[in-house]
Amino acid sequence: MTTTDLSSAPLRRRGWLTRIWKSRPPLVIGLSLFWLAVVVLMALFAEFLAPYGYAEQSLLKRLQPPGFLGGLPEYLLGTDNLGRDVLSRVIYAMRTSILIALMGTVIGASVGTVLGIVAAHFRGWVDDVIMMLVDFQAAIPFLIVALAVLAFFGNNFVLLVVLIGLFGWDGYARIARGLVLSTNGQGYAFAIRTLGVHPAKVYIRHVLPNMMGVIMVQITLNFPEIILLETSLSFLGLGVQPPGTSLGLLLGEGRNYLATAWWIGIPAGVVIFLTTLAISLLGDWLRDMLDPNLKGKDA
């Protein structure tokens, strides 16, 4: 590249969709996106896609193996110990689990990021208190706290979502605080404030968008953990309650039949595995896409 062609051809700003398209996502990313799209569609349109209701029993057709393995052809993934269609239950379970994990992630990411920014902005005792809470969170095994709270207050959906949301906020808080501290010290946030821009505007316009890449990666690390947390709670019987269904509950139900009727638990396990893997891969790739220092270097 010569200087002349640099100055005569100022770079055009393309939309982010075009940019992502032009960067030719690798095959794994395509597959991850495809899988996540399938999961989301199944979660959204469970009523239309599931061949049976998730609690619909037919006790005469209990413990049928999957249709393609010599079972009844109308039950593609077989039936469980109460004669419920495994495929339908997995589809409905995706809806519950994805919904809980999504709301939980949004709660955790917002609470953590805001607290991290607040800590770094005010410093002093505010910072001390927030960081102490972060240390508490990191020191206490969260599953035990969740079990205690759910056992004490009884189980309800809102409480479960809030609890799951509070899992992992400390990671966001730590990251946000560190990033704000570095840009406030001698960095651009400090410099832009010396122009007379209001601090709130500096955070919203400059600091937050610059943080999104890192937060996004943290979300992709946190999201699978949240799915696993929901799974563990449901597995232990303190999460989603029967006859409702979630991936963890399915896994828990399937555990007793793992040796004799493996098809009850395995599909839920496969869905959990594929979903968490896809999100992790996607997050890694997104981080590169969102890094402005890598923009325009791929062309």
């Binding site: 700003r13 001698q186 651009y188 832009i192 007379g196």
Partner: peptide, 28 residues
Amino acid sequence: RRQVQVVFQNPAAVVDPRWTIHAQVREA
């Protein structure tokens, strides 16, 4: 701040990496 401005040592550290320089001048 309008009356008194500072030019710092390391220009790369004091600009927002995501904004075009025109947008940053305009914001001021």
